[in-house]
Nucleic acid binder design. Structure first.
Lengths: 216, 216
DNA sequence: AAAGAATGAGACATCCATGTCTCACATGAA
DNA sequence: TTCATGTGAGACATGGATGTCTCATTCTTT
């Protein structure tokens, strides 16, 4: 299934996710080919990282497909998604870290579609009473993807055994995202309505100067 | 408190976290200064991003200090850490994304110290019976930092209100990290001992070719 | 074995960000 | 006013990655 191009792309991910400015020579060596052949496969550096981004998005879209996230119980769907996306966690980590990708319209559109599916899954789960409603679906989507990326980084760095990946991701995320079976003492207080509760919310939060951004 | 240099650095974070290859001219404009003055403040591009990394690590270290993570109940300590680190979430997002930083020894050492403190907090919490022991302290450390970074990204992109940041982070993470008050039905199954449970753990996980890495 | 394609290695040329310089202007102090 | 400092704007040189080329070699196919 994996074409020769995809093999090179996955090798490139391993290098670029650690050193985004790695030379093409280094990337080529990581893929077991020469710089000339790399240029024969991809016309340039921009094309290379764009193809990596597209590969990652295709894989994540495929994970959403095989998990059938639109079907059935939301919790079960999310567990299926965990299993389906963990193998491609490294590519998700690249997607999360390489913000430069989101200047390309093709990638941006594809990204928005996948995130919308994720968002819809969490919204559905909230309506089903499965996921907590104190946390916005947007935040749940972001957090889930970031944790998938964290899985990828941890495995790359040897901090997490691939065998434990799916369990670690599912347990940590679902523990925080699922509604508690019975309320009782476990349910925390809702977010403060006034701005004085958290003392430092606006103290020196960076980049308050950029009103609107693009990365959806 | 914030010197002129720090102001420029924080403005640079806003640009570099979105476009890591932004020109120095663009960074200077974001900081409200000219390229010449930027060069007078920082001798070069490498020095600039190194100083940003150092600033982020100093801020995170300061957050660990003010939260007194070595003191008292681990859950309370973590809640204090959430409040203390959310204002600098953007810098943490930069630290998480800019893996290029970890070629510098100074930054690497400082990073290891902070991560060790975080790791120790989770270990202590596990010994106290506060945090779940099915999830490794290393994974809890990684996940927490990734979620702080996710907070920073979400706020930068306008997807999360700064007011909700601390609550969203604390609830999602602690929900997954805390031991359930009473076991009952909420406790999930332990990770599979055999390799056949998760069908695709080793299917096409990227970068299996790199045995050891550096980013601690 | 022989022909063909594909690849690796290396040598260039080119482009562009970076680093450095100078000069004019603004601000503030004496 | 006059001097000093800091800053912005622009020009210029340079270094290094990138893009393109050629040629020898290897592997595949017949």
């Amino acid at each position: 299934m994996a074409t020769d191009r995809d093999t090179v792309l996955e090798a490139a991910v391993g290098v670029l996710s650690r050193r985004p400015t790695a030379h093409l020579d280094e990337i080529a060596r990581a893929g077991g080919i020469s710089r000339a052949t790399l240029h024969r496969l991809f016309p340039g550096r921009d094309a290379l990282i764009r193809e990596i981004g597209l590969l990652g998005l295709r894989r994540f879209a495929s994970a959403l497909d095989t998990a059938e996230v639109e079907q059935g119980d939301a919790e079960a769907a999310l567990r299926r998604l965990v299993d389906a996306s963990v193998p491609d966690a490294a590519l998700c980590a690249f997607l999360a870290g390489e913000n430069q990708l989101y200047e390309n319209d093709d990638i941006n559109d594809l990204w928005e579609v996948q995130i919308a599916r994720l968002h819809a899954l969490f919204l559905r789960g909230q309506q089903q009473g499965v996921f907590r409603i104190e946390l916005s679906a947007a935040w749940l989507s972001e957090a889930f993807f970031d944790l998938v990326a964290g899985i990828g980084w941890s495995i790359q760095d040897g901090r997490l055994a691939p065998r434990d990946a799916a369990f670690s991701l599912a347990e940590l995320f679902l523990g925080g995202a699922l509604r508690k079976p019975d309320a009782g003492t476990a349910v925390p207080a809702p977010p403060p309505a006034d701005g004085t509760a958290t003392h430092s919310t606006t103290t020196h939060s960076t980049s308050a100067h950029r009103p609107d951004t693009d990365k959806p």
